Amino acid sequence: MAGPFSDIERSIFVSKEVLSEDHQPDQILERDEEIDQYRHALQDVLFGRTPQNVMLYGKAGLGKTAVTTYMMEALQDEVTKRPDADDVHVHELNCNGKSLYTVVRTLVNGLLPEHASEFPKRGLGTADAFEELYTQLDRIGGTHLVVFDEIDHLDDVDTLLYELPRARSIGHITNSKVGVIGISNNYTFRQSLSPKVKDTLMETEISFSPYDASELRTILADRADRAFVEGTCDDSAIARAAAIAAKDRGNARQAIDLLRVGGEVATRGDDERVDDSHIVKAQELVQRGRLRNRIRDQTQHAQLLLETAAYIEQQGESPARSRTIKDRYEAVAESHAVDPLTTLKSIQNHLSDLHMLGFLQRRDRNHGEGGGRYYEYQLDLDPQIVVEIRQEAEAKPSP
């Protein structure tokens, strides 16, 4: 009896992983200027000097992490050929949802000798963790580059950026050198730092701008050459994927996803080539998938408020004031057996956050002294898709 996979004989993909989000290309395309800035910022390492601190800014999907990985690997390779350079140790951490203590503790545990006990999760303070970090850095010696991805999500980031870059100059370490590399999706992150941090950080700032359609076509053509069987991906598919992504956010990740999903659409349809019609079909699938991930990344109450806003939109009652949303939200929360937030202020804070994240539109209403001033909110997404995503999430059993 034939099995469910027995009739699968060929695929238009020859190396599908090239189109995956975690693929690290050997060559970085269309980021020559940023690479050149990075190169100058880190060149002191080649001569045994303390590295500059570097801050990278730009929205997701613009190549910040890929360029950083590429530069770290290239630097580690180059120092082996340079007699004046120290050994280079690279440490990479994602700060999203982490406390400062957790981040420093993770660094310490990555530096401890193989058979040493881990630094404790609790019972000691952040100062103790920093002290142990300095001890381990000096024990190992060399140059240490610490990459903090999503650094803008770290609590007490001022302490981190005041302490670590100054560790050698104020005598906390003597046998090693440290450079901080921060990656942020927030272009205004530096403005949130304290004046003393701004004055002492002395970092090189590298801003990653969105890709245009021509740049995205170059990137996609390179990926397509390696991902698909020769002759099975039309130029029209590459051009359409690049145009869609450039018009949206200039996001390379989105463009690559469109090409991959377009290939999957062609495969399911038993088509021998990927063309622009497959990319058009892929667009809705990719948008829905990204929106699903964005919604599921929100807190439980933020998701409930989005579901509430979707119902209000479907009933033709938007925009709505926060008081109206609160009443409807309480009913939605109770329908999911969730205790709702109890204060209007907490609701308003969540609504403001959802507006800042692009989920909601907000309108400022001012009716003078008699009517007062207030905000009205309206869903800035397709309400049906939001409701379907929320239904999927509620139907999925908890892990």
Score class of each variant (00 low, 15 high):
15 S>R: 15
16 K>I: 10
17 E>I: 02
18 V>C: 03
18 V>T: 07
18 V>G: 05
22 D>Q: 10
22 D>F: 01
22 D>V: 06
23 H>Q: 05
23 H>E: 06
24 Q>S: 10
24 Q>W: 04
25 P>T: 12
25 P>R: 07
25 P>F: 06
25 P>M: 04
25 P>C: 08
27 Q>G: 03
27 Q>E: 14
29 L>C: 04
31 R>D: 00
32 D>I: 07
32 D>F: 06
34 E>G: 00
34 E>T: 02
34 E>L: 01
35 I>Q: 05
35 I>K: 02
35 I>Y: 03
35 I>E: 07
36 D>K: 14
36 D>E: 15
38 Y>K: 01
38 Y>S: 01
38 Y>G: 01
38 Y>E: 03
41 A>M: 01
41 A>N: 02
42 L>A: 06
43 Q>K: 15
43 Q>N: 15
45 V>R: 00
46 L>W: 08
46 L>H: 12
46 L>K: 09
48 G>N: 14
48 G>M: 12
48 G>E: 13
48 G>W: 09
48 G>K: 10
49 R>W: 09
49 R>D: 14
50 T>H: 13
50 T>L: 12
50 T>I: 15
50 T>R: 14
51 P>H: 09
51 P>Q: 14
52 Q>N: 13
53 N>P: 00
54 V>I: 08
54 V>T: 02
54 V>P: 00
54 V>E: 04
54 V>Q: 02
55 M>A: 10
56 L>S: 01
59 K>P: 00
59 K>W: 08
60 A>W: 09
60 A>N: 13
61 G>N: 03
61 G>S: 05
62 L>R: 06
65 T>C: 00
65 T>E: 05
66 A>Q: 05
67 V>L: 05
67 V>Y: 00
67 V>W: 00
68 T>P: 00
69 T>H: 09
69 T>M: 01
69 T>V: 09
69 T>G: 11
69 T>C: 05
70 Y>C: 09
70 Y>F: 10
70 Y>R: 12
72 M>Y: 05
73 E>W: 01
74 A>Q: 10
77 D>M: 11
78 E>I: 09
78 E>T: 08
79 V>L: 05
80 T>A: 13
81 K>P: 00
81 K>M: 13
82 R>Q: 13
82 R>S: 11
82 R>I: 04
82 R>G: 03
83 P>D: 07
84 D>L: 13
84 D>N: 11
84 D>K: 12
84 D>Q: 12
84 D>F: 07
84 D>C: 08
85 A>Y: 06
85 A>L: 10
86 D>C: 11
86 D>G: 08
87 D>C: 12
87 D>K: 15
88 V>T: 05
88 V>D: 03
89 H>I: 03
89 H>V: 05
90 V>Y: 02
91 H>T: 13
92 E>V: 14
92 E>P: 00
92 E>F: 08
92 E>G: 04
